[in-house]
Computed example of a mutant assay.
Amino acid sequence: MSVRHLPAAVAAAMLAGFALAAPAAAQVSVESAAATGMTSGRIGPSLTALVALAGVVIGGLALARSASRIGTGNRGRRAIVALVSGLIGVVVGGVLAATADGGPGTGNGIVGSWAAMVLGLISLVLGGLALVRSRRSA
């Protein structure tokens, strides 16, 4: 699979995960109704996951674009942005996962924290590959 298709594959995987989670969400009992919606424990991990997702997109773009279409300096800057976004996702996601009190579905943001860590690792790998490629072609 080409790296150019990576953002579409990540989006499809995320949509498939949401589609599979829908039947489980239909079985929510009345007792756990307080944990639905955007709780204060979910805001931080959600924003961290969005930062890491932006790093994945930017890293994929930096890796997919050829040096003839954009300058190698631009690719290098995009690679560094992807690396920084990935590092933020891994570190902040790990801290938020370590401090979350409950498991999935409790409203403490453990799922968003793990998503931020996974997307952060993907962003780090893509940014690193793009940085190596930009240094090699310079």
Score class of each variant (00 low, 15 high):
Leu131Phe: 07
Leu15Asn: 08
Ile58Pro: 00
Val28Leu: 14
Leu53Arg: 02
Gly55Arg: 02
Arg135His: 05
Thr39Asp: 04
Leu15Lys: 05
Leu131Cys: 02
Ala35Gln: 12
Ala9Asp: 04
Arg69Asn: 11
Val92Lys: 00
Ser40Cys: 07
Gln27Ala: 14
Ala35Arg: 09
Arg133His: 04
Ala24Glu: 14
Gly60Asp: 01
Leu87Gln: 06
Ser32Tyr: 09
Ser134Tyr: 00
Val10Gly: 05
Gly93Lys: 02
Ser134Cys: 04
Gly109Ile: 01
Arg69Phe: 07
Ala16Pro: 02
Met1His: 01
Ala19Leu: 15
Arg69Val: 11
Arg133Glu: 13
Arg77Glu: 05
Gly86Asn: 07
Leu121Arg: 08
Ala79Ile: 00
Pro23Val: 06
Val92His: 11
Ala24Tyr: 15
Leu15Glu: 06
Met38Gly: 10
Ala115Gln: 10
Gly109Met: 02
Val10Asn: 00
Ala13Met: 11
Ala21Thr: 09
Asp101Glu: 13
Gly120Trp: 05
Leu15His: 09
Thr106Tyr: 08
Ala22Arg: 08
Thr48Pro: 04
Arg65Ala: 12
Ala82Cys: 09
Gly128Phe: 03
Ala82Met: 05
Gly112Asp: 13
Pro7Ser: 08
Leu119Ala: 09
Ile70Ser: 11
Glu31Ala: 12
Ile70Phe: 11
Ala16Arg: 08
Gly94Phe: 08
Met38Val: 15
Pro7Glu: 08
Thr39Ala: 09
Ser32Gln: 14
Val28Lys: 14
Gly44Phe: 14
Gln27Pro: 00
Ala21Trp: 12
Asn74Tyr: 13
Ala49Asp: 13
Pro23Trp: 04
Gly112Gln: 03
Gly60Arg: 01
Val92Asp: 01
Ala11Asp: 05
Gly93Phe: 03
Ala21Ile: 04
Glu31Val: 09
Trp114Gln: 10
Val56Glu: 04
Gly86Glu: 05
Gly127Ile: 03
Leu47Asp: 04
Ser68Met: 05
Pro23Ile: 07
Val118Trp: 05
Ile58Ala: 10
Ile58Lys: 01
Leu20Val: 12
Ala62Lys: 04
Val92Ser: 05
Val132Asn: 00
Gly107Ser: 10
Leu87Phe: 13
Asn74Ser: 14
Ser40Leu: 15
Ala19Glu: 04
Gly127Asp: 07
Gly94Trp: 03
Ala138Phe: 03
Ala64Phe: 11
Ile122Asn: 00
Arg4Gly: 09
Pro104Glu: 12
Ile110Ala: 02
Ala67Glu: 13
Leu61Trp: 14
Met117Asp: 04
Arg77Lys: 12
Val81Thr: 14
Glu31Ser: 11
Ala67Cys: 10
Leu63Thr: 00
Leu20Trp: 12
His5Trp: 13
Val125Pro: 00
Gly59Met: 07
Arg65Ile: 02
Met38Gln: 11
Val92Gly: 01
Ala97Asn: 11
Gly93Thr: 02
Ser40Thr: 12
Ala8Glu: 03
Val132Ala: 06
Arg133Val: 02
Ala12Met: 07
Gly93Asp: 07
Ala19Cys: 08
Ala9Val: 10
Ala52Leu: 13
Ala52Met: 12
Gly73Tyr: 06
Leu15Phe: 15
Leu63Phe: 06
Gly120Tyr: 03
Val51Gln: 02
Leu131Pro: 00
Ala54Gln: 02
Asn108Thr: 15
Leu129Phe: 10
